[in-house]
Every structure is written in structure tokens, then in C-alpha cells.
Nucleic acid binder design. Structure first.
Lengths: 349, 349
DNA sequence: ACTGTCGTTGACATCGTTGTCAATCGGGCG
DNA sequence: CGCCCGATTGACAACGATGTCAACGACAGT
């Protein structure tokens, strides 16, 4: 046990350097460098003396100092920008990126976007000033042309979840249009004709694609546009809840709802319960949610595969770092319809 | 639009340095440094020339190079170790830390622990080699004495969620024993006598405290220990589900269950549904879970306040960085009983 | 006109590490 | 015995930035 007051005395903030390890071991700094980095041509005995000294001083090399001089200029660090580290979807993406990175000794900076273009710019700038080796980005700006100089400089940039605009770079996204269409087809096949679409902020590319997929399938099903409510610019649980409440209380309430995002689905679930309509109004959500299987009825969803998005995005970054100079890849990860009950409710007659 | 093949040509990996900005602006490097860092004593005209040059070159200063020489030696970086960035509890902690850090221009490295002592050591080492200004740690090792040299060196270390052992450092934890006791009292007040405790790995300090709180309240309620099932070393949804299934299928099935952690609660919910016992077996979970209010019955929980844990932990780190040398703080964040139905089910007669 | 002061600026050393290169040493071989 | 070669080692410069300090010029006061 050591008291904190002690630490102020002894804790002169001094951290051992390679020079100090070298002095203690009675060798030159370069020899310490060789031992620490596992370079060849050091006798076993010398190496042991160096390791003992490093251990005794509790030495940890300064990665950034080394990086300054090292030829490859790699910080072994990645910048990850997601919607919010608090969102389960983002958490799964993050975890997959971390797992891919940890295996390579790469640490991950994570930042939350909150769909704020300014936060995006600031986060990217913070990443670049720290000289991350690569960027994995979910973006909120209309165009990401500001990243062009960085891309030309050779920094791997991979867009995840949302497609880039104004820049040709790797992207890993869900099949948003396809998944939304699948949801509509599922609802139509159960006899629904009066549908509602509850969507995210219009500026977001995924929201756009899901809306297009939804509308295409509606048209494909021969449903007149007038029978469909399209509500957009929802962004959180409460706005989605209120929007659906208004629909349910209105003149021609939908018999089936498609909620285009996890928080919107949760808001929709609340609205249906609020009006006691959860057993007679069909619901299909985009993106799976925890406990969806235990609700009554279970929540039918178009599940995304965020682990795959994160893993593949990280793999693209590392492939670029390993020298892959092929044209920009665009990887589309499929979605999966998970039938649990809410999507199979028939329309009220 | 720029093709990626082009980038390999022009992308010579060259990144502009302060020297290049200085040359373009026709000034010395130190003047550029002054402008970039907003130091005084530069004429407006010179400053503008420098800013123009920096803009033209898309210059971003190298924080780590500057840090090497700067007096304060601050990387404006924090290391955060949580159970898993994929877990909602950890996500909330993370988000709170990020919000506190972002306001100060500090970036956050996040790592997942997976309750693996070796991962803990590796993550901490990775943080230290990158010279983070402070550490916020959820730990899995039995003792964290290995951190003593670092603490003495003056690095702020704050333990979050789980208490430290063998080291006197700041800690921010939930009132685990109190929350668990509250759960038991709640169940006893509804007439239950045959209870079950479903707990996490025994080595985890929070699991220990929740178990002690549970048992203390059991004794306080005059319940014979023989009437209580204590199942430990559960760690994920499936192990919890199986454990509770065995209890439900056994001779004296509990009438009330206390699940000591969010994943265990979810596993317990599944087991109860599997046997159709969710309406006649009481359940109180530790840690709130998403959609708990929409289940039938709603899930009564002892809610933690992960945002507070994260925010306070970050504040402690920054207070230490700002010179606070007071003795180690131990902050206990209270829990909140949220009544939703499952905890108020009476015992089967 | 001279001196002192202050604002502006840049040369230089330096932070902790690694790349380069030369010095040293021991041993094998002619 | 002398030479060459490879293994081992350390001195030194350099990475990109900032702290120190001195030089310079303008200007006020005497």
C-alpha cells in the first residue's frame, strides 16, 4: 500500500528512458533498442542484462518517439468514428474492429459522431494529428472531399455503414435498399396495404437507401403511394414514438409499420403499447434489437451484421496498409429477415 | 474524384511538416509553431501568411512530435478499459468518458477486457507505451500491484465499476452490496422465502459484493440459508439460462430469482420463458436492460448509473491531471430500484 | 543623438527513439 | 602467423516539434 501523498514526493513524473536502461545495464542505447525490438545480433548474456534493467526500472518504450524516427512511420493506431459508442450497433462494429486490430498490436481511438458534421471534422482532425495509421468512418457530412488530400497521401480510409460521397474510397455497408424491400415484401405477403415508413434524418445515406428500397417495393407491390405514410427526420426513440402515436390516432392508421433503425423501432414499440395496438399492428424493424425475441409478440426484424461490417472494414484498412493499391472496394453485407411474430400479424379487416 | 491507382503515384506518403509550412510562408519554423499554437507576439500579417500556407498544404501538426519536446508532456489521450465495448453498460461508461474528454481535446483509447487478466496487462501496457495521460480501468487481475510504479510516477489511475486491490487509487463503483440487498428486501416484502442468486465469476469484485449484499439481506430477513440457491461463476447468457433451467426443473425451485448482471438477467428471462414460468416466478435483475419495460411482465431491476460512473471517473482523472494530490477517493454511486412487474410477482402458494 | 525597452523573429539544442555506419573482437583459414 | 569475415557493439544524426535565447528594429525618454 502506498499513500497518494507519497506519490507526489517520489512521483517526480520521471519515466525511465532507454538511456537510463542502457546505463543500468552498462550498454549503449542502441543495444537496448535492439533487445527491446527483438533485433538480431545481441548475445544472450547482453540481452538478459538489458531485460533485467528494463524490468527493474519498469521501463515501457515510448512508441511515439520511436515512430518519429522509424522508417515505416506507423503508430499502430486506428481511428474509428461511429454513430455513438453507446449504441448497440456501433458497439458491435467497434468490438469487431478492436478484435481485428488487437491481433496486430494496433490500438483503437473511438469517437462518437452524433450525426454532427462538425464533430466529424473535429474527430478526423484529432485522429490525424495523432497520426493514426488508418481511418474507419461513419460520416455525417454531405461530402467528404476534405479527406481527399489525406487519401492521396496514402492513409487508408474505409467508410463503414454509410457510403462516402465525393471521394472514391473503400466502403463497407449493409444492403439497405434490399433489406428494406425485403421487409415490405414480407408485410405485403401477409396482406397489408396501408403501410407506414418511419425513417431517420434525410441527410443520412442509409436512411435514403432504406427509404428508396421501401418505396421501390411498395411500387413493385402495386400499392398506391397515397396508402403509404412516409415519416422522416426521426432520430431518437421519443420522436419516433410521437410520430407513430400521431399516425395511430389519425384517420387512416397503418396496419403495418416499417421502422428503419433500432432506436426508431424501440420508439415504435412504445407507441404501439401506448395505444394497445401491438397485437393488431404489424411491425418490422431494420437492425436487430436485444430482447426482441422475448417481447409478445416477438419483434420481426431485418437484422444487420455489424460484426461483419466492422471486421471487413478493419480488414480493408490492414490490406491497404499491407500495400493493396487496387481500386476502391465497395462491400455490401447482406441482411437477414428474422421472423418473430410482429411482422406476421395480419391486417385488421 | 480521384482514382486509387493515382494515389499510389502521388501518394508518396509525404506529409507536410512545420518546416515545409515555414518555407512556403517564408518564415522560420518557430514562427509557424507560434501561430499554430496561438502563442502571442506574432504580427497579424505574418500569422495570416502562415495560416494560408498551412491551409494550402493541408497541414496537421504532429501531436506526438510536439509532445516529445513540450514541457507538460501531455499526449491529450486517455486509456479506457471496459468489460467489452459491445456491452451496453460499458457503452454508457465509454460515452460518458468520451464526453468529458472531448471537451478538453482529449482522445480516448478503448479496449475490451473480457475478464481476462492477461488482456488487462496487455491493454495497460499498450496504453502506457502510447503515453496516455491517464487510465480508467475495469480490471480482471486479482491484484493490481503491477500498477504501483506507474501510479508513483504520477499517472492518474481511476478504477471504475470494480474496486482495486493491493493499490490505493481512485475508484468509482456502484453500490453493489446495497443494491443487491435492496433487491432481496423487495422480494422478501412480497412474501418470497425460496430465493435464488445467479452470479458472475467469483473472482470479480462486483460479483463478490453483490453476493455479500444478497446474503446479508437474506440473513437479515431471517431466511435459512438452506432455502436459498446460490449459483455462481455464470458469465454469459447461455450459462445463466442453463443454470436457471436446472433450478426450475429441480425439486425445490425458487419462487424468486436475483440475477446479478445484465447478461445473466437476459439468460434468466429466457429460462423462465422456456419453462413458461415468467408469470409466476419473481425476478429482479442487477443493471438495467433495454426494453425491460416492454416485456410482460416488465423486468424489475436495480438500475446502475453507468453514465455517472464514467463521468465521475473522467472527472477524477482530470482533477489529478490538474494537480489534485489528495488521498485516493472512493466514490460510490447509488443504484435505483425500478419497479416494472417481474419483481412484484407473489410466491406460488 | 544615445540608451533602454519591448515586440518580433529565427537559430539552435533537445525530447526518446531508430537507422547508419564504423570500430572492435574472435575465430577460421591459407 | 597474418588476414579476412562475420558477429557484436556503440557513437552519431535524424525524425517533427517546442523551449531558450539572442538578434534585430522601432520607438520612447532623456
Amino acid at each position: 500500500m502506498t499513500s497518494l501523498s507519497e506519490r507526489q514526493v517520489s512521483g517526480n513524473g520521471s519515466r525511465p528512458t532507454m538511456r537510463q536502461v542502457a546505463e543500468l545495464a552498462g550498454v549503449g542505447v542502441k543495444t537496448v533498442s535492439r533487445v527491446i525490438n527483438g533485433e538480431p545480433n545481441v548475445t544472450a548474456e547482453t540481452a538478459q542484462r538489458v531485460l533485467d534493467a528494463a524490468r527493474a526500472l519498469d521501463y515501457e518504450p515510448d512508441l511515439h518517439a520511436g515512430n518519429l524516427r522509424r522508417a515505416d512511420r506507423r503508430t499502430r493506431t486506428l481511428g474509428l468514428l461511429v454513430g455513438s459508442v453507446d449504441n448497440p450497433f456501433a458497439g458491435a462494429v467497434h468490438r469487431a474492429v478492436e478484435d481485428a486490430a488487437a491481433g496486430r498490436g494496433v490500438a483503437v481511438f473511438a469517437s462518437s459522431l452524433d450525426d454532427d458534421p462538425q464533430r466529424e471534422r473535429e474527430a478526423v482532425s484529432a485522429f490525424l494529428r495523432r497520426r493514426v495509421d488508418g481511418l474507419i468512418l461513419t460520416t455525417a457530412t454531405a461530402k467528404q472531399t476534405y479527406l481527399l488530400p489525406e487519401l492521396r497521401r496514402g492513409t487508408p480510409i474505409v467508410f463503414v455503414d454509410r457510403e462516402p460521397s465525393g471521394i472514391e474510397a473503400d466502403a463497407v455497408v449493409s444492403d439497405n435498399a434490399g433489406g428494406a424491400a425485403r421487409a415490405v415484401e414480407h408485410l405485403l405477403s401477409h396482406g397489408h396495404r396501408r403501410l407506414a415508413y418511419l425513417g431517420d434524418l434525410r441527410g443520412i445515406t442509409t436512411a435514403h437507401h432504406r427509404r428508396e428500397g421501401f418505396l421501390d417495393a411498395i411500387r413493385g407491390g402495386g400499392i398506391p403511394a397515397a396508402d403509404v405514410h412516409v415519416i422522416e427526420d426521426l432520430h431518437d426513440e421519443s420522436s419516433a414514438r410521437e410520430a407513430l402515436l400521431r399516425l395511430l390516432d389519425g384517420p387512416d392508421a397503418p396496419t403495418a409499420v416499417f421502422s428503419a433503425q433500432n432506436l426508431i423501432t424501440i420508439g415504435a414499440l412504445h407507441a404501439l403499447r401506448d395505444r394497445g395496438r401491438h397485437r393488431d399492428t404489424a411491425l418490422v424493424g431494420f437492425d436487430d434489437i436485444e430482447l426482441a425475441d422475448l417481447l409478445e409478440p416477438g419483434v420481426t426484424v431485418i437484422a444487420q451484421h455489424p460484426e461483419d461490417l466492422g471486421r471487413i472494414a478493419a480488414e480493408r484498412v490492414f490490406a491497404r496498409l499491407d500495400g493493396d493499391a487496387s481500386p476502391a472496394h465497395r462491400v455490401v453485407v447482406g441482411t437477414t429477415l428474422i421472423v418473430r411474430g410482429s411482422g406476421e400479424i395480419p391486417p385488421r379487416s
